[in-house]
Amino acid sequence: MSSARRLSPLRSLAVVGALGTSVLLLTACTNADTTRSSVAEAAQTESPSPTATGTKSPSPTGSPSANEDQSQRKELVSATKVTWDKAADTAVKEVPEGKLVDLELKRTKSDATASPTGSPTGSPDMSTPNPAPSAGAPEWEAKVAQTDGTLHRIDIDAVSGKVFRTMVDPDQDADDKTQVSDWLDKAKQTPAQAVKAATAKAKGTVTHVELGDNDDQQVVWNVDVVDKGNWNKASIVVDAANGKVLSQDVDTD
């Protein structure tokens, strides 16, 4: 989606020729000892090392960053013990009559138990029933909506399965709540049904499920699935009304 190149034989000859010219010029201007020293330095600078020309990039695309992303997925997914559906069940139980609208696997931040407002006494809307995982450990960050569209954020330890923070979304306004409520009214497919449709197209571990709308104003479920064979991520868009897969994109980075 987004290749390692080797120095061609023609280019190697050009380098040697350039060095020869440099030697002649240096001879005309300096003594023999200086010339030999300069030639040696130039050869070290210009000549490609046998190791460098014979080594291929370890990345499938030749990009180190692509390999880093795959490694990060591997580390995060491998450290996770709680599956998406278990985390979803735990999150929904925290909000009476709540419905899941977003669930994402991510790393725990260092300020996991801090107040959203930075208050030392904490926010009255936030609860921390269990200790947070250590920074960098896997967590499931869930958003569960009430019938009026009010969102509750529930953070779940992805190893123990315990809730370590809950709070009402402090950034929602009336329009936001109306939009979420509208999405829920139009979504006839549950998160589990959307995931079933997505994983029928791309096998792997579910790392993100989110309700929203697309450019055509269709209400959709966006599902991310990581292939544990190559650690690529497939993003599948599922129509939330009928369960049809609308698109699929594979991120090889």
Rank of each mutant, 00 (worst) to 15 (best):
S2Q: 13
L7Y: 04
R11N: 02
S12M: 03
G20L: 00
S22N: 06
V23E: 11
L26Q: 13
C29H: 12
T30I: 00
T30W: 06
N31M: 03
T34I: 07
T35F: 00
R36G: 02
S37M: 08
S38P: 04
V39M: 05
V39D: 12
A40Y: 10
P50Q: 10
A52R: 15
G54I: 05
K56R: 10
S57R: 14
S57I: 01
P58E: 04
P60Y: 02
G62K: 15
A66M: 06
N67D: 08
E68Q: 12
E68F: 02
D69A: 01
Q72P: 02
R73K: 07
E75A: 06
V77Y: 10
A79H: 12
A79S: 15
K81V: 06
T83P: 00
A87V: 09
A87E: 12
A87Y: 12
A91W: 12
K93C: 03
E94P: 08
E94F: 04
V95W: 11
G98L: 08
G98A: 07
K99H: 13
E104L: 01
K106W: 03
R107T: 08
K109H: 09
S110M: 11
A114Q: 15
A114C: 04
P116I: 01
T117S: 03
T117A: 00
G118L: 04
S123R: 11
D125I: 00
A132F: 08
A135P: 15
G136E: 14
E139D: 14
A142I: 11
K143T: 09
K143M: 04
Q146G: 06
T150G: 05
L151D: 14
H152C: 00
R153P: 00
V159R: 15
K162M: 08
R165E: 04
V168G: 01
D171K: 06
D173P: 04
K177W: 05
T178Q: 13
Q179D: 10
S181C: 05
L184F: 09
Q189H: 06
V195C: 10
A200H: 12
A200C: 05
A200D: 14
K203D: 11
G204H: 09
H208G: 03
E210P: 03
E210M: 04
E210D: 13
D213M: 03
Q217H: 09
N222G: 07
K228L: 03
W231V: 02
N232A: 00
K233M: 01
A234N: 14
A234T: 13
A241V: 07
G243Y: 14
K244N: 09
